[in-house]
């Protein structure tokens, strides 16, 4: 009898632990069990990514539709190649979609904003976004301003 209550108690305890883990996974980290891994990859070249990190969000009209998975450098052209995953549920993007690196707020993290195009054809898995605009680098802006003020 005593052993039985202990076993029931331990069963409930382990169950509570597993439920707690499930709660953490679903409610706190917000994983989506139905559509995990259902995404396609796009690349884009930028002149300067200035502080963009992997796992940064990719958004269109402010809504997150993907994540940056990798940032590489193409030494030959002196450009950064950003690899991103776009969720399939977000739908397809036109071939002339533009990508720009923006900042959330004044001091916020860098993210990629996709701008809709008007082309008939759609981007497929592994395609490259051609129309890109790199991050605004504050130092360059200030340098620009100083030279202009000096010239006038």
């Amino acid at each position: 009898m005593r052993m039985r209550t202990i076993e029931i108690g331990v069963g409930a305890f382990v169950l509570a632990g597993i439920l707690a883990l499930v709660f953490l996974a679903v409610r706190v980290s917000g994983i989506n069990l139905t559509q995990s891994g259902d995404s396609y990859t796009l690349t884009a070249r930028f002149d300067d990514v200035a502080g963009l990190k992997t796992r940064a969000r990719v958004a269109m009209a402010g809504v997150t539709i993907g994540r940056v998975t990798d940032i590489l450098v193409d030494v030959e052209y002196g450009q950064a190649v950003v690899v991103m995953e776009i969720e399939r549920t977000a739908g397809e993007l036109t071939l002339d979609t533009g990508a720009a690196i923006l900042t959330e707020g004044i001091l916020g993290a860098r993210y990629i904003s996709l701008l809709p195009g008007a082309d008939e054809d759609m981007l497929a898995d592994g395609d490259e976004i051609m129309d890109t605009q790199g991050a605004l680098v504050l130092e360059n802006l200030i340098g620009d301003l100083v030279t202009r003020l000096g010239a006038s």
């Binding site: 382990v14 509570a16 632990g17 597993i18 707690a20 953490l24 706190v28």
Partner: peptide, 16 residues
């Protein structure tokens, strides 16, 4: 080894 991770998960949930 089995108990402590369970307790940690419960701790996290209760603390949140």
């Amino acid at each position: 080894v089995i108990s402590l991770p369970m307790l940690t998960a419960i701790f996290n949930v209760v603390a949140i």
